[in-house]
Design a protein around this nucleic acid. Sequence first.
DNA 1: TTGAAAGCGCTAACAG
DNA 2: CTGTTAGCGCTTTCAA
Lengths: 345, 345
Amino acid sequence: MEPSARPRRVTIVDVARHAGVSTTAVSKVLRNAYGASPEMQTKVRRAMAELGYRPHAGARGLRGQTYTIGVMLPDIRNPFFPEVLDGITRSLEDTEYQVLLGPGGNGEKAEARVTEAMVDRGMDGLVLVAPVSARAHLERVASMVPTVVVGRHGSSPVYDTVVDDDVEGASLVVGHLAALGHRRIAHIEHHETDPTRLAEMPNARRADGYRQAMRAHGLEEWIDVVSTSYTQEGGYRGAGELLSRPRRPTAVFAGADVVAMGVLEALAEAGLSVPGDISVSGYDNTTFAAFRPVSLTSVDQAGTEIGGHAARLLLERIADRNRRSVQVSLSPTLVPRRSTARPPE
Amino acid sequence: MEPSARPRRVTIVDVARHAGVSTTAVSKVLRNAYGASPEMQTKVRRAMAELGYRPHAGARGLRGQTYTIGVMLPDIRNPFFPEVLDGITRSLEDTEYQVLLGPGGNGEKAEARVTEAMVDRGMDGLVLVAPVSARAHLERVASMVPTVVVGRHGSSPVYDTVVDDDVEGASLVVGHLAALGHRRIAHIEHHETDPTRLAEMPNARRADGYRQAMRAHGLEEWIDVVSTSYTQEGGYRGAGELLSRPRRPTAVFAGADVVAMGVLEALAEAGLSVPGDISVSGYDNTTFAAFRPVSLTSVDQAGTEIGGHAARLLLERIADRNRRSVQVSLSPTLVPRRSTARPPE
DNA sequence: TTGAAAGCGCTAACAG
DNA sequence: CTGTTAGCGCTTTCAA
């Protein structure tokens, strides 16, 4: 292993020479393009194999495609996103496309940097997962490269969307708690100020769904929403606020599993038992929700399927850039666990 | 937003014409290369800004660099890796380099696909996190592009390594449990067959460290290692096996936090309390280890620093490809929580 | 069906 | 310090 041994890459020219054909021929075989006889095909393929040829994606991208799909994840830490990613990679593993991830970093600037970088690298298509960027930016990106937006409501003519029905998810939780006999059901939401995002972000939909469901169950007088953030700390603060109410809620619907963890922390400190004194539900059905000591009731979003749909839509759009935009909405399911039970007498 | 409005990209030629200079001049400014007067600089920069010019990474890569760093993560789900990633991106956010992730997918074939893809895309440097591939493959990759391997012991002349001292980590756990009064301390390890990997993989080091520490504490007669896998299910099976021993251990050192979750599951089913009946320790100090209902004693690996070192080493190696390889080893710390306590009388 | 030649956007080597 | 020129590896006309 000589550190200085840096052999020149095998190029299409080498393959052509080795096979005794033109570079054009090699290119055609490479792309499965029309106009290469079976004998030509086998000849070229043999040469490629013998030389260990690998096409240079950057060079291909200069004229054609890079065979690269970029996936922007806002937060690698959120255990829900890997599911989506799995769905995407699985749908793409039998294609020539390679998936590369961009760390979105939860902020408009970080997202802009990553999306620009992906465009600059000539990616053939983009999947943006739960982006927080302004819609104008999303549309600008989508106007340059085929794009599918995941986990954000609202439709655009230039990109496709895949979402899970957050209103329904919230309704499942409220329904579950109401059926157990709870009336004083509170909700902790992620605070959102930006007016355009307000309608499109899942967190806002969950809060809306909560309100709607409470009304549907005749519990409007108990509607109680605390605005913090979708973090453990947000859950902790939110729970603190709820515990200071004159009439405490008997159930807390946290907008995300991490939020629920903060709630559990606060309840434990206050000496309250779950679900004995208070029931708690999360959202996302993340890995740790299933862990024995946690056992958190949550809403499952079928991440794999979301990713699968996103990949399919993207391939379609790459094939036909002018086709009409599509919106896919999937239904969540409730996963009841030991953190929810009948309210105390 | 016309779906069909696809304006031609602004190129270096446009910038040159707009600024009234040569393309070479623009290229020099772009790269902060030597040989451009201050006036030239400002003129060109203005033109770039006015036209909204963005360099095409693929085209740049054809002659020079792509300004892209590829990071291969074996398993996005493992909450330890995001830490490493943070360290990398943070060290790189003030540079021109963009970080893109490749989903390694935990398998030699998947890893090969991703590393090849990164090489094909002309990436300037690679960080391979906890790769399972054969060393020969790692060296082949490293011989083509500057590479840093993270979380794998053993040194190579062609790539740098950054590891956390797993032997010491295991020793911390055993020391902690021994100090609490435990003697019958068992360990659940990840089963490893491949002989070359055996010496290099962190899991093997942890098991070794466990054995060494047990001896150092005069507890060799209680050495008890169960080989399963670093998964929740592996922990469940491992615990089941340990519970069937004639003399049950009073403490279980799981080689990873997920493994510990499986252990907790099995103990709960057996009606045993933690830490009342049995103490449990994990490894990695993942996010959920800190969650209130979990509160798992674990070993923290300073992932951010690991990532930071990896990025630094990579930049150094990109600057000087023939410099001697470097091995960095960091020290772990123990994070005691409520899952460990004195053994029952 | 095949191949020659031009060119994608940029950098490097070289002259001026 | 500046500009001209020749590629990088591939795809795409366009003739043959």
